[in-house]
């Protein structure tokens, strides 16, 4: 036979229990973002493209520039005006020569623009190995621009459509070892090579171009 405990004893643990349950139930609310620094101290670069001289010029060799286009946006095109970048001038409205959005590169010519930009693909050469004479020797048929969609995927047949090799196992894009001759909106001629699709942090959509006037 078990004797019931006094009521006064019964009530105390209940109150204590309720209090403890309320206390342990009140511990939620922290926001993970508030306790984690995620900006990595990165400053705003101020624009979609960034150009710097990386060689040539003083040595008599053609000057080489590197331009990084931030093409990481899924929606907006990031334009590059090579004529302006070459002279250091401000880019002109409508004067862009090519633009990039993710891995797509469009020319200001053909179905993509009215600037008359054309390119010619030069396989088996290096950027330094392409001079004005080499461009002069190109047949007229070698110069192409963007065409209408020819495979039904809804994307125009960009002249630079096949600038990369896709590694389907690693899901990475690697630029093909080729040089492009480009005739700009102002009729200037450039040699251009795509160097990378990723920035130092491994972010895709950061198109790095090496180029120079010819």
């Amino acid at each position: 036979m078990i004797s019931p405990a006094p009521l006064s004893v019964d009530a105390t643990p209940l109150r204590l229990g309720l209090l403890a349950l309320i206390l342990i139930s009140g511990g939620c609310a922290a926001d993970l973002r508030a306790t984690t620094q995620t900006d990595d101290g990165i400053a705003d670069t101020g624009g979609p493209t960034d150009t710097e001289a990386v060689g040539g010029g003083d040595t008599g060799a053609p000057q080489v520039f590197r331009t990084v286009i931030d093409a990481s946006s899924e929606e907006a095109w990031a334009p590059l005006d090579l004529d302006a970048a070459h002279t250091g001038a401000e880019p002109e409205d409508g004067g862009w020569d090519l633009q990039a959005r993710r891995y797509l590169i469009a020319l200001n010519g053909g179905v993509s623009g009215e600037g008359g930009v054309q390119v010619a693909i030069l396989d088996g050469v290096t950027l330094d190995g392409v001079d004005a004479a080499a461009l002069d020797a190109l047949p007229a048929a070698a110069w192409v621009s963007d065409q209408e969609d020819d495979d039904g995927d809804g994307i125009p047949a960009y002249a630079l459509n096949e600038w990369y090799d896709y590694d389907s196992a690693a899901h990475t894009l690697s630029p093909k070892a080729r040089v492009y001759a480009l005739r700009s909106t102002e009729g200037a001629r450039f040699a251009l090579q795509i160097e990378d699709y990723y920035d130092e942090a491994g972010t895709s959509g950061h198109l790095s171009l090496l180029w120079g006037a010819r």
């Binding site: 973002r33 995620t38 990595d40 990165i42 942090a201 972010t203």
Partner: peptide, 16 residues
């Protein structure tokens, strides 16, 4: 459940 992805050296692929 909170999930935070912080890309080192960049913010482009950060996610929350």
């Amino acid at each position: 459940d909170q999930y935070l992805l912080d890309q080192r050296g960049a913010t482009a692929e950060d996610a929350y």
